[in-house]
Design a protein around this nucleic acid. Structure first.
Lengths: 103, 103
DNA sequence: TTTAGTGGTCATAAAAAACTGACTTATTGT
DNA sequence: ACAATAAGTCAGTTTTTTATGACCACTAAA
């Protein structure tokens, strides 16, 4: 009767991983904004009061790495980079909506 | 054309509040375990490897304060305290399940 | 009255996350 | 060649979370 111990590594809680992707000071906010259209670094920085370059930059990178956002570089006049919701990201929208409706 | 700024206080992202309730090292795990039945402090401490009194204690308190868990004191032999999912907590189960199925 | 079990708290230390300001790279326009 | 704009990075500091170990309260049995 060896009860399997719960650890941080074996990740017994399947929701934990996904929750982790959205944990971080501005990630839920960034995700929500991304639902309404592509995002740009400088706009986020402007619109989210109290945010800072470092944190927004890291959040965008992590959201991209986790596959929720997609980064698109547009070689234009002063160089544009846009972040779109990926397919995986879009799949999360209904869950997100459900969370919103819970309050 | 005064664009409303997004701040931490005005909480423009409705999902953020709820996500916050489940953010913290062992909260998703504790919630998941609570779905399967009442929890006890010492059992959690035993079963969750790498956890510690302080963190479990705080997590339970915060989950209770946020209304997801309900604390029940049973004045028995060596004193028992159980944590049950509250009605609000139960309402969260489907969202949680959806999160689990996304992986 | 000492001991054991359960359920914690408290002060402090260590680790992780977020903030700050200076600096960097890339591109186009002058 | 130089300035302007966008999108960052980097080193260092502050703040927030977690972890550790000592200690406390309650109950009941020996």
């Amino acid at each position: 009767m060896t009860t399997k111990k719960i650890t941080n590594d074996n990740e017994t809680c399947p929701a934990q991983g996904l929750l982790k992707l959205l944990s971080g000071k501005w990630k839920p906010e960034i995700f929500r904004l991304a639902v309404n259209g592509p995002l740009r670094f400088s706009s986020l920085l402007r619109d989210i009061e109290g945010s800072n370059k470092q944190t927004i930059s890291l959040a965008l990178k992590e959201l991209e790495e986790s596959g929720l956002l997609q980064k698109v570089t547009i070689k234009q006049k002063p160089l544009h980079i846009e972040y779109y919701l990926s397919e995986n990201g879009k799949a999360l929208i209904p869950v997100f909506k459900q969370l919103e409706n819970m309050i």
